[in-house]
Amino acid sequence: MSAKNRILQYSLAINEALHQMMSRDKSVFLIGQGVKSPWYVGNTAKGLLEKYGTSRVIDTPVSENGITGAAVGAALAGMRPVVVHPRMDFMLYALDPIINEAANWHYMTGGKSTVPLVVWGIINRGGEQAAQHSQAIHGIFAHIPGLKVVMPSTPYDAKGLMAAAIQDENPVVFIDDRWLYRTEGHVPTELYTVPIGKGVIRKKGTDITIVAISYMAPEALKAAQELELAGISAEVLDLRSAKPLDQELIIRSVSKTKRLVIADVGWKTGGLSAEVAALVAEKIGTDLRKPLQRVALPDVPAPSSKTLEAVYYPRSKEIVKAVKKILS
């Protein structure tokens, strides 16, 4: 296979971004729980410790607040840390360094300091892991001025957004999902970036727009293929960044199709799907032919039992159902 068409797993695409950025820039280092254990981070950290040693690949005690704070401080002192939280739920201990410190620091210093930091949180849904091992809390971070939030759904974007996040002068929350780790796709061997704040059209269509992010993007594509068979032409947008939101892309597509389904991996209330809905209401308002539909998690903590889990996580069939509700 030529390098041009090289296929790589999502998790290995992240790994490659880390390798290439650490080799290019000595100020980049990886810190967090389990960076030397595949049990924690899958194969995303493969080979890093062997190559860069314990000074730049730092496995840490269970101290999310202190360690994330240290990453913020190292960024203020000229480094480009990537601090990983193998389960995003535990990252809630680190809200102070992320929100109070990292997000505000550039502003609080009148632009004198920057925090070139990546806070990497991994979503670990399903598997009967219940409420504290499954949460998708991107909405919390997208709410905060000074933070950028990226959520790649393809191996190509996983590598390009990790590289972009590391190169950014601002704190970026990089959120991936274990359900995507085995996804395969084309990933160039050379280092490249995917622009933060830019979404992408995954499939062109004319009848309805489906705005999705992270794991819901491939589900939206699956739904669009099924809808195609039923004679419905859906346009699928993958936001890739929860903040900044690619407003122009959303508005352009929805202005054309005048119908909208939003598919998010988080809860419905006060989250990303609500933000997209509000944006469309503000900019397009009554131009929609039918009220928009949202496919999101119900406002319920993640359950453990499989019968509950099966109805908790929406998939492509819920997206199809929402589209059909609008087009009926």
Partner: peptide, 25 residues
């Protein structure tokens, strides 16, 4: 003087990180 912040103890971790940066370099 990298900064000050009133969230009590918040900057202790930040200073630790600045020391980490110095130790890596």
């Amino acid at each position: 003087f990298l900064g000050a912040a009133p969230i009590v103890a918040g900057t202790i971790a930040l200073a630790t990180g600045a020391a980490l940066a110095a130790s890596i370099r």
